[in-house]
Amino acid sequence: MSTRADELIDRRRLRRKLTFWRIVAFAVIVLAIAVATRQIMGDAAGRSSDHIAQVRIDGTIFEDEELLERLERIRQTDSVKGVILTIDSPGGTTAGGEAIYEEVRLLAEAKPVTAQVGTLAASAGYMIASATDHIVARQSSIVGSIGVLFQYPDVSGLMDKLGVKLEEIKSSPLKAEPSPFKPTSDEARQMIRSMILDSYDWFVGLVTDRRPLSREEVLKVADGSVFTGRQALDIKLVDALGGEREAKAWLVSKGLDEKLEIVEWKKRETASSMFIPEIASRFLGVPANGADILRELGAERIFLDGLLSVWQPETNRLSD
């Protein structure tokens, strides 16, 4: 009889626990929907009235389809009267920078666009800034690093130590060159160098077209060097010193109403992507966004491929 009573008590406890967790799960879902609704409604309300759009471009630059689509939506939105690109990037892939550069140029043909540099706008980051019609940088910002880079590992020495030998049959000597599994031939080096110089010439041409500098003046500063905002102003790589206030002031000088609010156009996110990672990040003490986790670890730079326009201060990372 006692055993039967214990079983009933255990069942009641289990039911109470299940009821509790069902209520918690329901509350989490309701809260997530509320947060998402508020986010969507707030964005819609802010974007429906006339405003200045702000877009943040930070971290390592890749070919970012979502960012390109966002810039296109801004260009097609009548309530956006001007744009501030807030840039804080060491650069990234040259193709990624080129794609964003071209989209910013289309945007600048429709609305006044200015760049506001934070800590860093180097290499592809500076390429994107130069696509705007006005660049504002902090006095201590890092600007420049105009150039192109191609890097690849050479593990042939390690293979020799391990007793591993690579066998290959190729249609021509330069197929799949350079290879990390053997020393680079002179012909392969010349091929890569030719490609690098061609892309470098293109990059210099972009800066020449966009800045009040002759090609000869651009070449003098396009040796991979970086400059402070103060130095960059002297050599005309930026137009003014300051921050968001100065960037907005330039837009006002182009005819925008000084009372217009600055509204950040963020990446579109679903309720689950906004709320669930937020909870997990608080418990684990890590960034809520998976890409941010990679950025914290510095791992995103490992996966860069192709020609690079990137600058980092540490010698153990990619550098111009």
Rank of each mutant, 00 (worst) to 15 (best):
P212A: 11
R230N: 09
R211Q: 01
I61M: 00
D305N: 13
S281Y: 03
W202V: 07
R13V: 12
L31G: 14
K170S: 05
A99H: 08
V24R: 05
L294Y: 08
A32Q: 00
G229S: 04
D223L: 08
E98Y: 01
A137P: 03
G118L: 09
I74V: 13
D305T: 15
G82Q: 01
I9R: 06
I33M: 09
G97K: 12
D186A: 08
S123P: 08
P313L: 15
M127D: 04
G46S: 11
D198E: 11
E261Q: 08
Q231A: 05
S225E: 01
E72M: 00
Q76Y: 01
L166A: 01
R56L: 02
E102I: 03
F62S: 11
A124C: 07
A240G: 02
S199A: 15
D292T: 04
I235P: 12
E187C: 06
F62C: 10
D320A: 12
E167Q: 01
N316A: 14
A249E: 07
V238Q: 06
V55K: 00
Y200H: 15
D10P: 00
D223K: 10
K165D: 09
V148W: 00
V310W: 06
D257W: 14
E314G: 08
Y126F: 08
R301D: 09
S140C: 15
S309M: 11
L241R: 01
I61E: 02
R245W: 09
K236A: 05
R38G: 11
T94A: 13
V113T: 03
R47S: 14
D198V: 11
I293A: 05
R245H: 13
F227M: 05
S49N: 12
